[in-house]
Amino acid sequence: MMALRFGILGTAGIARRRMLPALRAADGVEPVAVASRRLDTASGAADEFGLVAVEGYQALLDRDDIDAVYIPLPTGLHAQWIEAALAAGKHVLCEKALVPDLATAEKLVEQARAAGLLLMESFMFLHHSQHAAVRAMIADGVIGEPRVFTSAFGIPPRPDGDVRYAADLAGGALLDVGVYPIRAARLFLGPDLTVAGSVLRTDPKYGVDVAGSALLSTSDGFTAELSFGFEHAFRSMYALWGTKGRLSLPLAFTPPDDHVPVVRIEDENGVREVPLAADRQFVNIAAAFARTVREGGDFAAHGDDILAQAALVSAVRAPSLPD
């Protein structure tokens, strides 16, 4: 079967460091071209990976040798270029957060469905085998009945001029790092989640949120305690606390390909550590995207996932007040 031919809209760091190498390594994928607003910028990435350099994002979308695009642009530019890519008949893998609000997510999901195209939000961590291993442990009762999920993702302050601080490009901690703990909570607690409360701290210098916390809950009282921000020592973890013990996983969201995960389990018998296999989550998501397109996978499920995520993110930003 013919490989899925990819174009890349933008030369962001995550594209050059992680996704372009992954697209080259993934089964069923052929990266073809990379675009930037300036040809010299596109040429730098293209020369590094043996691709065609294209000046301008629309010029890449107009090519007939591209089946799908990967979009690593700032969040505030996602909607414009997702819409343009879908209009050009391209499947879309877009970096998180897909868009800043639920209404825009609904519009783009409807456009993708009407066109019969795959639109996927690139939560690459979901494609690392460590999380399936943890879920299997939970199902086996290693900590009893889960009661509380805790997760944090924080990074040190960024330098002035970093796009994460650009209010006009939908910057801010919630959309950059906060979406990871929210998506992880959904992975372990399921779809029955509402936002009980949240706090965001906005930096007046930048006009974007730089830190936040949220409390989510299911209808039966299973809670998720989430924290995130740009003014922290690095932390990327989640833990589950149950009736018989506690399980935690450090470096949950951004492990290097050669990282050997270690699950820490604490119970009445003491503490033990369980090593897991290293994995390549960027390669895995690229291959999964291509497989879904080429084998006629469930496009609708990805649309539903986008909407569920956007609804929770919107609720964390503006939680409803109690009656």
Rank of each mutant, 00 (worst) to 15 (best):
D168E: 13
H302S: 01
P31G: 11
R183T: 05
A114M: 12
S122I: 00
S43F: 04
A87S: 09
H259C: 13
D40K: 15
L23C: 06
H127P: 12
L247W: 14
V274K: 08
G50Y: 07
E121G: 06
K244F: 01
V134P: 05
L240S: 02
H127Q: 07
A277Q: 06
S122K: 12
V34Y: 11
L189I: 01
I138G: 13
G270F: 00
A170K: 08
V260H: 08
V208W: 02
T104P: 00
A185F: 09
E30Y: 03
A133E: 15
K205H: 05
L175N: 10
D64L: 08
G270M: 08
R37S: 14
G212W: 10
L249C: 11
L9P: 07
Y238F: 09
A115G: 04
V274Q: 14
G89I: 09
D267L: 04
D62E: 14
D203W: 07
Q80E: 06
H302Q: 03
H131T: 12
T218Y: 08
D62R: 04
D304A: 14
Q80R: 10
D65F: 00
L276A: 11
T11P: 05
L193E: 11
E225W: 07
L187A: 10
V262E: 09
A59C: 05
A301P: 05
M124D: 04
D40A: 15
H302R: 01
M137W: 04
P21R: 07
A42Y: 09
A300I: 12
G56V: 15
K205R: 13
A233V: 06
L321H: 13
T223Y: 06
R201V: 14
G190C: 13
A25R: 13
F149K: 02
L226E: 02
L226A: 09
E225K: 10
A310T: 06
R291C: 02
K96R: 00
Y70R: 04
E121T: 10
A311Q: 12
T11E: 03
M1N: 06
L77H: 10
L4F: 08
L321F: 11
V54S: 10
D176S: 13
A287V: 03
A114D: 11
V99G: 10
Y165G: 10
L117Y: 02
A84W: 00
L60Q: 07
R18F: 05
D220H: 07
L126C: 04
D40S: 13
L60I: 13
A35S: 14
G190N: 12
H127D: 13
A112T: 08
G28I: 02
